[in-house]
């Protein structure tokens, strides 16, 4: 049964739909317009050969769907484990910095130096040390993700007010109790800022890692398509990479919305 429009719930729904529409319609229309333009240009032969018609990319994606799906799963596997490893390392280091404040500069300097090294420059070294295995790819992904997460985690644990700190001192809290019951809950909104930045980076990290001698993954398909000049296939891998990057970002945002009350979410990606 359709509720009448005067019903509060119905009004709320319609307001929600209209806000949803005004939020998503303009970009959606823009994307559709660009796709149509590209299609027209490609069919009219105006565009270069390296610029395939969207429909051709769509057909290539459909044709390779099975392989694309398999390889994307492999990439996602590396991205997710790299992301989790980076989060675990960041929280451990944030705990160390929180428990022993003197080491903050040391940790941050080391992290900054590590993050300024171009990943392509240390990849050969990592390959020699760790071998051409999945673990190496996870390590590369982790390395790319760790800096923004670490910065936000440390910023978060330092946001604990001095009164609450004293309260935990009076209660004779041990360092780990203090961290899990005070610093971590205070840090969570900050942490999510870093996680939002790191989510698309994890996909980037996994793809880049696959370019150095991996046998599976979306990045491998990408390279193969490039070297064999299969432009349609190259484009479909790129499109999928974009989609899963966006998806990773959206997923972290969704978790954040579910985990935190609205007023604790820190807007904007400052990290």
């Amino acid at each position: 049964m359709q509720p009448s429009l005067s019903h509060p719930a119905a009004r709320r729904t319609s307001r929600f739909t209209s806000r949803f529409a005004s939020f998503f319609m303009p970009p959606a229309l823009l994307i559709v317009a660009v796709l149509v333009l590209a299609e027209v240009c490609a069919r009219a032969g105006v565009a270069a050969r390296s610029f395939p018609a969207p429909s051709a990319v769509g057909i290539a994606t459909w044709r390779d769907a099975h392989a694309l799906f398999e390889e994307t799963l492999s990439t996602l596997f590396v991205a997710i484990y790299g992301f989790i490893a980076a989060t675990a390392i960041s929280l451990t280091l944030a705990f160390v910095v929180y428990a022993v404040r003197r080491v903050e500069t040391t940790v941050m300097t080391a992290a900054a130096v590590l993050s300024s090294i171009p990943i392509m420059a240390i990849m050969p070294m990592l390959l020699i040390w760790m071998g051409p295995f999945v673990s190496t790819r996870i390590a590369v992904t982790c390395l790319i993700c760790v800096f923004p997460i670490l910065v936000s985690a440390i910023q978060g644990v330092q946001a604990v007010g001095s009164r609450l700190d004293e309260l935990f001192t009076v209660m004779a809290a041990r360092p780990l109790q203090r961290f899990t019951r005070l610093a971590l809950p205070v840090a969570v909104p900050y942490l999510f800022v870093g996680l939002r930045v790191a989510a698309p980076l994890s996909i980037l990290g996994a793809l880049v890692a696959e370019w150095s001698g991996a046998s599976t993954g979306l990045g491998v398909l990408m390279l193969n398509a490039m070297f064999s000049l299969q432009i349609d296939r190259l484009w479909s891998t790129v499109c999928i990479a974009c989609v899963i990057s966006l998806g990773a970002y959206g997923y972290v945002c969704l978790i954040e919305r579910l985990a935190l009350p609205g007023d604790r979410v820190i807007e904007g990606a400052s990290a």
Binding site: L164, L167, V170, L182, P185
Partner: peptide, 12 residues
């Protein structure tokens, strides 16, 4: 046991 001027409760 210590009571501060502000309640200093954990908001979550």
């Amino acid at each position: 046991g210590f009571v501060f001027q502000e309640a200093t409760l954990l908001p979550w």
